[in-house]
Design a protein around this nucleic acid. Structure first.
Lengths: 156, 156
DNA sequence: TTATTTGCAAAGTCTTTGCAAGCAG
DNA sequence: CTGCTTGCAAAGACTTTGCAAATAA
């Protein structure tokens, strides 16, 4: 992620906070920064964010992290994802108008989560919306299977 | 669901239990029966199964329900689904070779879950599998939006 | 008979909440 | 200043586990 992207995200936070009568705090700034810095290692749980902050010597309360990832989600800056691994995870929302498309390939063997970007689901979505008389505003797709690494070795 | 379907399911349970050195117990039989009887009201949580059993005067321990819905899932009789409502839910797996296709329309307003059957995702799946070098064996799709009921009244 | 299963209660994990002290605007 | 935020600890919701008694095969 480029420098301009980073400062854009942070400006976005400032704007959305003040627009909703919330205040900018070091906690909020640094929590967002953790997501911006984790180009890899997305899909962070509250606990993981808390731990990453501690590694940077920001010792915020865990409850504060919980409260703020939720707030950032309400503001549309983060999105919730659930990989059924026992905790709620969050990732940066892309903010490009295709914000709501997030697709994941989950390896049943090593539990690796691979992202894919292609969006071929628009037509499917249109047909389903018409058929079920349902206005779709968001979707989440998870494909479960085996990644190339795991197919090339004995399954544990 | 027809009578033949019901007894088929129960036979299936007997067979899979003994094939894996598990025993048939009244608890297991009645837990499966709850799912068979709930043509509507699928997507049951352990707590809901426990409550439905109590209504039929089967007062099994909640821990037993938790243990057995998990066991039925391992045996391929039930499937886990997660609607991010704070608990794990289970539904009868269809057992027709398309077992793994389950798609849900979730109304953001009333939280109603509408099922849809059509499967137009095979081609999408094929292209993704090829592109990402990932062998897909299962998928779960959730579409979020507004159902026809909610679009016809003021959003709460 | 004998290994599996149950029920209960206790413990565990993740998350939320109440409240006094602290801080941004 | 003043109301929003934080940190802490306690509480909550859902789920798992240990263990002795019960039971299916």
């Amino acid at each position: 992620m480029s420098e301009t992207q980073r400062s854009f995200k942070m400006q976005d936070l400032r704007g959305k906070l003040s627009a909703n009568n919330y205040k900018m705090t070091p906690q909020r700034k640094e929590i967002l920064q953790v997501f911006i810095d984790s180009e890899q290692g997305n899909h962070l749980s509250a606990e993981e964010v808390h731990e990453l902050l501690r590694k940077k010597d920001f010792d915020f309360g865990l409850a504060t992290v919980y409260r703020n990832v939720e707030l950032l989600t309400e503001l549309g800056i983060l999105m919730k994802v659930n990989f059924d691994d026992g905790c709620v995870r969050y990732e940066l929302s892309s903010g490009d108008g295709k914000t709501h498309r997030h697709h994941h390939l989950i390896c049943l063997n090593c539990k690796k989560v691979i992202e894919f970007k292609e969006d071929m689901l628009d037509e499917v979505e249109d047909r389903i919306a018409a058929k079920a008389d349902f206005e779709i505003v968001n979707h989440e797709v998870k494909f479960f299977g085996y990644c190339s690494d795991c197919r090339n070795k004995v399954t544990t």
